[in-house]
């Protein structure tokens, strides 16, 4: 124990005495120029979505407005816009009747559920830990 303590002190003194390795003299300048280049590239290739947020809000509002007017408007109304857009067809639309009736075997459904479960587990066990490791979070 005493020997270990002495070795500890000796190594501490020795490692401190040796000091650290020195990189090249222009190290800081090289890093700063690399950063400037990197930020320029990031600016040039900055991701911009095809549709802006405003465009999405407008599109969503129009869709919602059409559905709301289709539900609440009187189908007998002979307004030009209503008939022009054929909105009366929306209220008469029967979703369940329009879908094809495809029979699935139970085993297919079990398999599908199992694959979905493993894909979901993959996110937590593989994807997220790796993402965390490379994000260098403090």
């Amino acid at each position: 124990m005493e020997e270990d303590k002495k070795l500890n002190e000796f190594l501490k003194k020795s490692v401190k005495m040796v000091g650290l390795e020195k990189p090249s003299s222009d190290f800081t300048q090289v890093v700063l120029s690399k950063i400037t280049k990197e930020t320029q590239i990031q600016k040039e290739y900055k991701y911009t979505p095809l549709f802006s947020k405003t465009a999405w809000v407008v599109v969503c509002s129009v869709v919602v407005a059409i559905f709301v007017s289709a539900i609440f408007a009187n189908s007998s109304t002979e307004s030009t816009l209503y008939t022009l857009l054929k909105l009366n067809q929306l209220t008469a639309f029967n979703l369940s009747g329009s879908l094809p009736n495809i029979p699935f075997l139970n085993i297919f459904m079990y398999g599908f559920c199992a694959i979905a479960f493993f894909a979901w587990m993959h996110i937590f066990l593989v994807y997220k830990p790796f993402k965390k490791r490379y994000q260098w979070q403090s």
């Binding site: 990189p23 190290f27 090289v30 690399k34 950063i35 990197e38 260098w136 979070q137 403090s138």
Partner: peptide, 24 residues
């Protein structure tokens, strides 16, 4: 190689500085 890696470390740290939360 160590010099190259060290430079990359500082560039990476700069670009990821917004993820440094000061917990360490």
């Amino acid at each position: 190689e160590a010099e190259e890696i060290s430079q990359d470390v500082f560039v990476k740290a700069y670009t990821a500085l917004n993820t440094f939360k000061g917990e360490s």
